[in-house]
């Protein structure tokens, strides 16, 4: 499967009657890397929930490659190629590592599990262990591996580095780099570790109160500390 571009236009979404994401538009070309930045509570996770059909969309459109996902259901979006690694990881804690991975296979053969074990050899060592017995880093590896086994053409990663030791963060970012370089998927990343996000991404959007307040190339943001300070706060710079 080759990467597909993600085109979001005028997206307004939220939970129940509450609007969280307001008029968000962006366009990531196939194989591109976009980072979504912003302080806590500005609607980053809700944006992903809207993209995957979990949050309620009020208006706007979502197009993945040639497929219009706007009115499709969550599982149909996943089948169309939109993968999600949620902030809460959401592994199945009472299932083994291998069973968790099998759950992400869709209709692929069992032999495809080798891809996950190649990307994260630690998971191969822990394949018989239940999810609840994994460390935070291993759980994150499992969550990412499970998502990529479904061969997404666009992968949404919600704060994959949250709460992890720096050495584990390095390992995960290396794996994400490898995935991006493979040309198999477009990657959209939400991350609070601003430095790592800027280093990883080609493009950045910054959200504030559900709206995009800045968008541009990562290098451009990197060269503008005042923009980072104004939109994200100095304390957010790692």
């Amino acid at each position: 499967m080759a990467a597909e571009g993600l085109q979001v236009t005028g997206l307004v979404a939220g939970w129940g009657d509450t609007v969280i994401v307001e008029d968000v538009s962006f366009d990531v070309p196939a194989g591109g890397r976009l980072a979504v930045l912003g302080r806590n509570g500005v609607g980053k996770t809700t944006l992903f929930s809207a993209l995957t059909g979990i949050a309620r969309r009020r208006s706007g459109s979502i197009i993945l490659g040639e497929t219009d996902l706007t009115r499709t259901r969550t599982f149909e979006r996943a089948l169309s190629g939109l993968g999600l690694v949620p902030q809460t990881r959401d592994i199945f804690r009472s299932l083994t590592v291998e069973e968790n991975l099998l759950a992400g296979l869709k209709r692929r053969p069992r032999s495809a599990l080798a891809e996950a074990y190649q990307l994260f050899p630690r998971l191969a060592e822990r394949r018989s262990n239940q999810g609840e017995h994994l460390s935070g880093g291993e759980q994150q590896m499992l969550s990412i591996a499970r998502a990529i086994l479904g061969e997404p053409t666009c992968l949404l990663l919600d704060e994959p580095l949250e709460g992890l030791a720096p050495v584990i963060c390095d390992q995960l970012m290396t794996a994400l780099d490898a995935l991006a370089l493979s040309g198999r998927m477009t990657i959209v990343l939400i991350e609070q570790q601003i430095r790592r996000a800027i280093d990883f991404a080609d493009w950045i959007i910054i959200l504030e109160r559900g709206r995009i307040v800045w968008s541009g190339e990562a290098d451009e943001l990197n060269a503008s500390p005042e923009t980072i300070e104004r939109t994200l706060g100095v304390a957010a710079m790692h």
Binding site: I54, F92, R93, S94, A103, K106, G150
Partner: peptide, 24 residues
């Protein structure tokens, strides 16, 4: 079977199963 695995996954987190591409 894969169906049984899906069922156990649904029992633990149906929302997650949907994002993995399965109809619950």
């Amino acid at each position: 079977s894969p169906f049984g695995l899906k069922l156990r996954a649904i029992g633990r987190d149906p929302g997650r199963v949907r994002t993995l591409g399965a109809a619950v």
